[in-house]
């Protein structure tokens, strides 16, 4: 099989033109997931009556549904019911005026809410209760304790798992292609369908997703360094340490090369 490098490039560029759409599909569910997911985690940790029981059932059940299935169900509901709902509210608009990206945003947000709430709950559970007690003992209120003591620690503990969740989200944005939302994948395939260079199209899409993933991981590892100083010591020490590792690695490599 011949790989058409020019076609990869074309698909890459075409895919990139849809980057804003994909970024919306990442950033909106991520933000909603962080805010609502963390709130749900707190509701469950503080055992708020009714709500905590509800989420204890809803979240595992919902997480058992594959995202494609959920997306298709929402899309069917959207296709069948949007006009009725609009009419019910006396709107003169029709389904043609409602962008189906909202269906994708809804499905992805719900997915993120569930997974982030689990991540945050795990991180919250890992905080020693002495941290709360020390905070109360110096006269801080519950909200102050959460804001100043608990959440900063929780976030830094949760970052590795949040990276996973976000990388999962980036990949999941491509499935909204299935309900006809134009994003990176469908963009990359536009030149392909003209010239039958589908392999190159998917390859280009893969490269874009890969770059996005790397960027997100870099961003998080920056945040992780910023927030987790207290676990490992000062940033300077950490930098020195990694520099040392790097040096010893490279010198070892150099030695090995000299020997061979």
């Amino acid at each position: 099989m011949q790989i058409d490098v020019k076609a990869i490039f074309e698909s890459f560029v075409s895919g990139l033109t849809y980057l804003p759409k994909t970024l919306i599909l990442i950033l909106v569910p991520l933000s909603i997931g962080l805010v609502v997911g963390t709130s749900i985690a707190l509701v469950r940790i503080y055992k708020v009556p009714v709500l905590s029981q509800f989420f204890a059932v809803f979240i595992p059940v919902y997480q058992g549904v594959p995202i494609v299935v959920a997306l298709m169900v929402y899309n069917l509901i959207y296709l069948m019911k949007t006009n009725d709902v609009l009419k019910f509210f006396g709107s003169s608009k029709t389904i043609a005026d409602i962008d189906s990206i909202y269906v994708g945003l809804f499905a992805l947000s719900l997915m993120m809410i569930c997974s982030i709430s689990e991540v945050m709950r795990g991180a919250l559970l890992s905080i020693n209760k002495g941290q709360y007690e020390a905070s109360y003992s110096v006269g801080m209120t519950k909200p102050q304790t959460l804001r100043k003591i608990i959440l900063p620690q929780v976030i830094s503990i949760a970052i590795p798992a949040l990276i996973n969740t976000t990388v999962g989200l980036i990949k999941s944005t491509s499935i909204v292609y299935a309900i006809g939302i134009a994003e990176i994948l469908s963009g990359a395939l536009v030149p392909s369908s003209r010239k039958y260079t589908f392999f190159e199209g998917y390859l280009a899409a893969a490269i874009i997703y890969w770059i996005l993933t790397i960027l997100i991981e870099l961003l998080y590892s920056y945040l992780e360094k910023r927030t987790s100083i207290f676990k490992t010591g000062k940033t300077e020490n950490k930098k020195l340490w990694s520099l040392k590792c790097w040096r010893s690695n490279t010198s070892e490599k150099a030695l090995a090369e000299m020997k061979s």
Binding site: E133, Y136, F230
Partner: peptide, 19 residues
């Protein structure tokens, strides 16, 4: 809250704020 602000507490395992 009033009572807590009149007392200090020193814990067996210190419980310093880790962050």
């Amino acid at each position: 809250l009033d009572l807590r602000r009149k007392t200090g507490f020193v814990f067996q395992n210190y419980n310093l704020f880790a962050n």
